[in-house]
Each structure stands twice: as structure tokens, then as C-alpha cells.
Write a protein that binds this DNA or RNA. Structure first.
Length: 816
RNA sequence: GCAGGAGUAGCGAAGUGGUCAAACGCGCGGGACUCAAGAUCCCGUCCUUUAGUAGGUUCAGAGGUUCGAAUCCUCUCUCCUGCACCA
């Protein structure tokens, strides 16, 4: 049978909404469970299959936990600030707000179509002044505490986005949004957030999280801690520091390299070399724009010499393109014998290579391993480990060095020269300097009237930026940059706990009840962006006493990627997109949900297949057919055993996010129940099992069984262990095997041209009843009539003495 | 290059020391029903062999540990995903 899923799904979506059954309040008597899916950026093209997959995964768990008696917070909202809306608006001569509001409306409609059990009352949008007001508030709190600062520095700039980017937004030297666009380095004054203040904690606490291992490793690598020594070198009577993890190679230094981007590079350049250095800088600027994957190591002599801290030898200082300006001190000691990069550079510029660690062949390549020291004055003969210790101590004694820890992690560049984001709440006054906007004046609203084109749109609205200084009432100017949209997503999960609060960012009591998030799902692409920023925010808000926990997301889950039928990742450019709303219109949301989680584990990639969804469609119809006119009979103990066993396994599978395995067991159970006597209670249990996956159908069937309340709020079935009897499983296996054997023999006989009409089975005495009980099953599945004897029955019909073949678990079979 | 994950039937996917030739779904083959098609139901689907048997080859490849391995160890290959001159 088929069913009118459109009508049915709309009916239940309406009922859920009007009765507000998924709206929740804090309830001290109930345990809580916070399920969150990463809130979407509302694009014009609407929900894609990846969203549907992600939200289904979360919703199944939310529905399950809710039925388990937990107070489940399951909210959603929109990450609605951002460049795509602004660019789309410019292209269409529209306004980002119009664009965004329209997209959100569409998203909400589509999300509701999926039957997601959200508490819509808590919905939030980051472009809502009621939301971004608190972005500004947090920004000011950080500003007050010195965690926000302005600095002129070489920064990443994307020419396509027409704005600067954070380190985290640069992937492989390209913009995260434009993989065909090289990021350009510009020297600009920008706003930074001191995320590095929490480097150590962000690194340490990673281990305590129930997150996918690879995400944890990515974060650790991103923070990139290394222990080493900083060493002072004297250059032109000035002190210059370098950082090294290999003090044991100190005597192998044959030159120094300072980064071409070093802010004080020119201080090192002598008159004679100025021309050449400038030529070099010009050259690396132009090569940057070319599409070169691996830059060759290049450099130029600065004219200056450093003094070796121990031997006092003169060491030439080069400027080089391979030294990172803002790691360590932007300058390195070069030991070509024991570092491949230095080796390459030395070869290119014919600089000496001095071996100080034995064990390699430094004529051919750098030896980066450890060994005994040679050519190292007093330290000869020591191992690398020993000498690291001794050399460091010597340097410390001479006050020329000390042990330090370095991180790759940088401060977060948050200002953007674009319109569609939160205005940075800062005022510049020539007299009074840089000051934060007063809390009572928040929010600094984004003006609607601006001109889009070249440069920062907010600079085109004088009314916005020309203001009086709040202190001296003189002429002042507002900051016209906006915040990186990752600022918005760094704390939205907190606001969900109290999203309508107009007086404060949130009520601490509510936060205390709901946080941290118990289950957070989303794509892995946020490993080193959103997930680090969010952790940073949590730590900051904790330190200003707004929170009393350290980590926002206890468990993180990454769903797999959705692939098209051609097995490539679904993408517009490939043209293999399957639109979830089209699928819903064709099959219904229940079937889509069911299919999305039935083929494989949700953390694995999902491959779309039209045949596959057809399979789910067939199953759902079979299910409806079964429940169409339910007969209530008394379940026997076999049925009860099977049901209890299934409840037990399905519950564990859902708990462990093995939805695919849960579904298999649910399917098996339906096959098992077909044609058996089943009680109302057992039928109800069955519907409950299906309800997290196919909630609309479950509600409908639940109602049809005469229930008045929502199944969504019912109690998940308890397992009665005493009813589970493995004996029945064994019997079932015996029958299955017997049917298989019979069919096998039938086939063989028929192949020989003989006809088969009747089955005779000869059972060992104590199994006789098993076969008798399953007589109809055997007849149905073999399509033959059957007769069963006990082996020692004298009156049996057995012309070929097949009864002698009977064994326990295996009857003798005679066919004629 | 470094790090993480993966490689099981035509495909998707279970199985992580013995009961596994491998659940379940898709596909494919056969049968029932039907005037027919679809839907539905049943059977089969590694190879050889057979009145339900017996045997063989398997879990990317090669070794090893073990009484016993898809499952543990070592090496190799392939694919995916991150990071990539961080001193």
C-alpha cells in the first residue's frame, strides 16, 4: 500500500508546532541533554543533503534521549552574517538583509519539512541586533581586559573577498572561500584577539574531550607547541634573538637567516647591500602572485654579521624567503649540516657546511638525527641529549639564552573591511584616543544605507561613522570594520540557553542547567576554525565569571560527506546535487530520514542512490501495510523474547550512533512479526522503536492504535531481560537451516527432472515440537505441504530410510 | 614529507581472536500471483561438488605471533582527509 505522506507529515508537523511539544524549560527534577547541530549559513540555494544528513543524525538522538526521559534541548538558528550574502546582494543590486531574511524563511520551511524536533522558540539569527549586540558586549569585555588589541602587522588579504583574513582562514596559501585565489600579504593595522593567551589550556584540555581523534590531533598540530631555547646573538652591537629546538647543533652555525617579512629587516641591511636586498624583496613579492606550490629557498646577504654567543665567530646574516616572520623571532640560526632547509640554502649560495653531530653523510644531505657531538669544543663526545642540557645551561649561565616554549598558534585577526557583519564597537577620538562604546549605547546598529563598491561600505555612510566623542564631545569617528563572522558562531550555543534575554547576555542559572553541549554534530572542516574559537570564548567567559565549566562541547561528532550517485562529493560544480526538498516531495521526510541513516554508519560518507531510497520506501510501505488493520492477540513468549532482545539491541545501537545497525534489527523484527500473534503492547513497542527515525509515521500509527498523546513524548520501552530466551533464537536458526536444506534438495531433484509435492521430516524426539510449531512457516516458505515424524515412529512413511540421517538440530528429509 | 582514517561478495555495509562464506540492503537470477506489467511474497546469488553432503579459495599484498586471525604484530601497495619551509 502507499500512503499520503504529504498530508500525514504536514498534519503532525502542525500538531507538534501548535502544541509546542519540543519547547523546553529548565527542570531540576529531570536530567538534561543538549543536542546541537552546527547552525547553518542560510544560503540562497537552500538546504542541501549534507544539512539533511546532519540534522537527521542529531534529531534521532534528540528524540531518543527525550523518550528516555531526559529534558532535551534541541535548538537551531542561523549564522546569517557573512560575505556570500553581501556579494550576492551586490550582484543582484539588492541588500544583504533582504537576501538573508528571504533565505532564512526558506531554510525554516525546509527544516520543518524534515520533521526536526527543534525548540523553535529559541531560534536565533546572528544578524539580529538583539544577538550581535552581545557580540559587541563580549568584544568590549575582551577590550577591557586587554584581550583585544590593534596592531600593524603583515596580514593575509584575499583580493576576491576584498578583506583581510585570519590565519585559520588561509588554507595552503589560498583563501578558504576561494581555492583559486592566492592570499596576499599586506602590512595593515587591524584588530586582533589574544587567543594565544589560552594556547596552553586549549592544547591540554583537548585530551579530555570525547571528540574524534583526528580533530583532536588537528587542533594540537594547529596550536603546535614546541620546547626549545631562545638564544641571543649580537649583531651590530644590538641584541637579536632566535629560537631553536636544537641547541646541540650550536657549533654548526655557519650563517643566520632573517625573514624577508621581518619588521626590522632594514636595520640589518648595510648601505652596500641595500640595493640588492630591495631587489630581492621585489622579486619575492612578484613570485608570490605566481602559482608556485613549493617556493625555492632564496635569500640575499644583508651585509651584517652576528657574533656566535660562545665562539664569538663572525656569522653572515642573510634575509630569506623561507623564514616565517611571526614564529619565534623571525630569525633563525642556520645549521646546514643538520637541517635540510639550511642545507639547501647553503648549497645554493655556497656557504660552508660544518658537521657537528656524527652519524650522517653531510656531504650529500643534512643529517637531522641525533648522535655524538664533534667539532663542538668542550662538548665533543656528548650525546645530543646531554649536550642540549649542557649547552642550554652554559647559555643560561652567560645570560645569553633560556628555555622557552613556542606555539604556532597566532592571535586571531578579527576585523573585516566588509559590511555584512557585526560593527566593531570602537570610537576613535583625536584627543581621547581609542575607546569602547558604552554598554548602554549597544547595540551599534549596522546602518542599512551604504554604498557597495570599492572599499569598506560602512565608510560610505557618514551618519554612521561621524559621531561625537562620548568623553570630550569633540569630533570622533566610529570604527568602520566589522567582525569576522566566526565571532558570531563562537558563543551562539550559549545564547540558545536563554535566547530571548534582553537584559543580559544570558541567565547564568540557565547556562548552568543546560551547558555544556552533550552532543555536537557538524562537518570536520571546522576543526581549526570554529571549534578553536568556540573553545577560546568559553575559557574567556569562564574567566570573567560568566561560566563555570571549561569546555563547551563534551562530545563532538563528525558526520560523513554526502556523495552523489556518481560517487563524487555532492557539489554544485559537479552537478550531482540531490535536493532534499525534492526528495521529501517525492518520498516524504520519514523515508528520507530513514534512508540517510540506514546504509552506513553516520560518521562514514554517505552515497546517494535512487535504488537505495526505493528500498527504504518499500520497507516503510510494508510497515504501514502491517499496521493498517492491526489485530491484537496475545503475544507468545517467543514474540516477547524477540521484542525484548530487539529493544535492548536497538537502544544500545542508537546510544552508540550505530543507527544503521538499529535499523537492520528493526527491519528484522517486522519480518519476524509478520503472521505471528502479537499483542497491542508489543505493537506499541514496535512503533516506539521506529519513532526516532520516522517520527511522522510513528505518530500516525500511535494514534491509530487509540493513543491520545504524542508518541514523541512517550517513554522509550524498557527491556525485560527475563523475557529474553536464547533458546528461541536457536530454534529459529534450526528452522531456517531446515528450510534452506529442503529448498536445496528440491532444487537438486528438480534439476534431475523429478517432481516434488510433499516433504517428510524426521526429527529427533525432543525437537519434534519445534518442527510442529513451525509447520506453517516451513510449508509457506517451501511452497510444499509437509509432514513431520519422530525418527522412531514405526508408522512413519519413509521409503528411503532418510530418518537415519536425522541429528539434533537437523531432521532427516524425504521428498516425493 | 608528516599526521589521521580506510581497503571484506557486482555495489553499499556488518563482523575486530574460534560458533563467519560473511548479517542486512541494493543489484542480479529463478519461482508464485497476474491476461500482462507493476507492486507484493518466496527461493537463490565465492568456486567445485551433492538428495540437504563434502571440499576448495577468500577479507588490498607479503611475512609473523597463536592450537586457531578479516580481526594482534611487521613490512609493502592503493585510496581518502588534514597540515605543510614553525627552526
Amino acid at each position: 500500500m502507499s500512503y499520503n505522506f504529504k498530508k500525514l507529515e504536514a498534519k503532525w508537523q502542525r500538531k507538534w508546532e501548535s502544541k509546542k511539544i519540543f519547547e523546553v524549560k529548565e527542570d531540576g527534577k529531570k536530567g538534561k541533554f543538549y543536542v546541537l547541530e552546527m547552525y547553518p549559513y542560510p544560503s540562497a540555494s537552500g538546504l542541501h543533503m549534507g544539512h539533511a544528513f546532519n540534522y537527521t543524525i542529531g534529531d534521532i538522538l534528540a528524540r531518543f534521549k527525550r523518550m528516555r526521559g531526559l529534558n532535551v534541548l534541541h535548538p537551531t538558528g542561523f549564522d546569517s552574517f557573512g560575505l556570500p550574502a553581501e556579494n550576492a546582494a551586490i550582484k543582484n543590486k539588492s541588500h544583504p538583509k533582504i537576501f538573508t531574511d528571504k533565505a532564512i524563511k526558506n531554510y525554516i520551511k525546509q527544516m520543518k519539512m524534515l520533521g526536526l524536533s527543534y525548540d523553535w522558540k529559541r531560534m536565533l539569527m546572528s544578524h539580529d541586533p538583539e544577538y550581535y549586540k552581545w557580540n559587541q558586549w563580549i568584544f568590549l569585555k575582551m577590550f577591557e581586559r586587554g584581550l583585544v588589541y590593534r596592531k600593524k602587522a603583515p596580514v593575509n588579504f584575499c583580493p576576491k573577498c576584498d578583506t583581510v583574513l585570519a590565519n585559520e582562514q588561509v588554507h595552503n596559501g589560498k583563501c578558504w572561500r576561494h581555492q583559486d585565489t592566492d592570499v596576499v600579504i599586506k602590512n595593515l593595522e587591524q584588530w586582533f584577539i589574544k587567543t594565544t593567551k589560552y594556547s596552553e589550556e586549549l592544547l591540554n584540555k583537548v585530551d579530555s574531550l570525547d571528540w574524534p581523534e583526528r580533530i583532536k590531533i588537528m587542533q594540537k598540530n594547529w596550536i603546535g607547541k614546541s620546547q626549545g631555547v631562545e638564544i641571543e646573538f649580537e649583531i651590530n652591537k644590538e641584541k637579536w634573538k632566535i629560537f631553536t629546538t636544537r641547541p646541540d647543533t650550536l657549533f654548526g652555525i655557519t650563517f643566520m637567516v632573517v625573514s624577508a617579512q621581518h619588521s626590522k629587516l632594514m636595520d640589518l641591511v648595510t648601505k652596500e647591500q641595500k640595493n640588492e636586498v630591495e631587489k630581492f624583496l621585489e622579486k619575492i613579492k612578484s613570485t608570490r602572485e605566481k602559482d608556485i606550490d613549493v617556493l625555492e629557498k632564496e635569500g640575499v646577504f644583508t651585509g651584517s654579521y652576528a657574533l656566535h654567543p660562545i665562539t664569538k665567530e663572525k656569522i653572515p646574516v642573510y634575509a630569506g624567503n623561507f623564514v616565517v616572520a611571526d614564529y619565534g623571532f623571525g630569525m633563525v640560526m642556520a645549521v646546514p649540516a643538520h637541517d635540510q632547509r639550511d642545507f639547501d640554502f647553503a648549497k645554493k649560495y655556497k656557504l660552508p657546511i660544518k658537521e657537528v653531530i656524527s652519524g650522517g653523510n653531510v656531504k650529500k644531505e643534512a643529517y637531522v638525527g641525533f648522535g655524538k657531538l664533534i667539532n663542538s669544543s668542550d662538548f665533543n663526545g656528548l650525546t645530543s641529549d646531554e649536550s642540549k642540557e649542557h649547552i642550554t645551561k652554559t647559555l643560561e649561565f652567560k645570560k645569553l639564552g633560556r628555555r622557552v616554549i613556542q606555539y604556532k598558534f597566532r592571535d586571531w585577526l578579527v576585523s573585516r573591511q566588509r559590511y555584512w557583519g557585526t560593527p566593531i564597537p570602537i570610537i576613535y577620538c583625536n584627543k581621547c584616543g581609542i575607546q569602547g562604546v558604552k554598554e548602554k549605547d549597544l547595540p551599534v546598529k549596522l546602518p542599512e544605507k551604504v554604498k557597495f563598491g570599492k572599499g569598506n561600505p560602512l565608510e560610505t555612510n557618514k551618519k554612521f561613522f561621524e559621531i561625537k566623542c562620548p568623553k570630550c564631545k569633540g569630533k570622533a569617528r566610529r570604527e568602520t570594520d566589522t567582525m569576522d563572522t566566526f565571532f558570531d558562531s563562537s558563543w551562539y550555543y550559549l545564547r540558545f540557553c536563554d535566547s530571548k534575554n534582553k537584559k543580559e547576555i544570558f541567565d547564568k542559572k540557565k547556562i548552568k542547567y543546560w551547558m555544556p553541549v552533550n552532543f555536537y554534530t557538524g562537518g570536520a572542516e571546522h576543526a581549526c576554525m570554529h571549534l578553536i574559537y568556540a573553545r577560546f570564548f568559553t575559557k574567556f567567559l569562564r574567566d570573567i565569571k560568566l561560566l563555570d565549566f571549561d569546555e563547551p562541547f563534551t562530545k563532538l561528532f563528525n558526520q560523513g560527506m554526502v556523495h552523489g550517485e556518481d560517487k563524487f562529493v555532492m557539489s554544485k560544480s559537479r552537478g550531482n546535487i540531490v535536493d532534499p526538498t525534492i526528495v521529501i516531495n517525492k518520498y516524504g521526510a520519514d523515508i528520507l530520514r530513514f534512508f540517510l541513516v540506514s546504509t552506513g554508519s553516520p560518521d562514514k560518507d554517505f552515497i546517494w542512490s535512487e535504488n537505495g531510497i526505493d528500498g527504504s520506501y518499500k520497507f516503510v510501505n510494508k510497515l504501514l501495510g502491517y499496521f493498517f488493520k492491526p489485530k491484537f492477540e496475545k503475544s507468545d513468549e517467543k514474540v516477547q523474547s524477540k521484542i525484548n532482545k530487539t529493544v535492548k539491541e536497538v537502544s544500545a545501537d542508537i546510544e552508540n550512533l550505530k543507527y544503521n545497525l538499529a535499523i537492520i534489527k528493526i527491519r528484522n523484527l517486522l519480518d519476524y512479526l509478520q503472521g505471528k500473534k502479537v499483542g497491542k503492547k508489543e505493537l506499541e513497542i514496535y512503533i516506539k522503536l521506529i519513532s526516532p527515525f520516522a517520527p511522522h509515521i510513528a505518530e500516525e500509527l500511535w494514534e491509530r492504535l487509540g493513543n491520545k498523546k504524542f508518541i514523541s513524548l512517550e517513554k522509550w520501552p524498557e527491556v525485560d531481560e527475563s523475557k529474553i530466551n536464547e533458546k528461541f533464537e536457536k530454534e529459529e536458526e534450526i528452522i531456517e537451516k531446515t528450510i534452506e536444506d529442503i529448498n536445496n534438495v528440491v532444487k537438486i531433484i528438480k534439476d534431475k527432472g523429478k517432481n516434488v509435492n510433499k516433504i517428510y521430516l524426521y526429527s529427533v524426539p525432543n525437537e519434534f515440537n519445534i518442527y510442529v510449531d513451525n509447520l506453517t512457516e516451513i510449508e509457506k516458505r517451501t511452497g510444499l505441504s509437509a509432514k513431520i515424524f519422530v525418527v522412531n515412529d514405526k508408522s512413519k512413511h519413509d521409503p528411503e530410510n532418510k530418518s537415519s540421517k536425522a541429528k539434533p538440530g537437523k531432521p532427516g528429509i524425504y521428498l516425493e
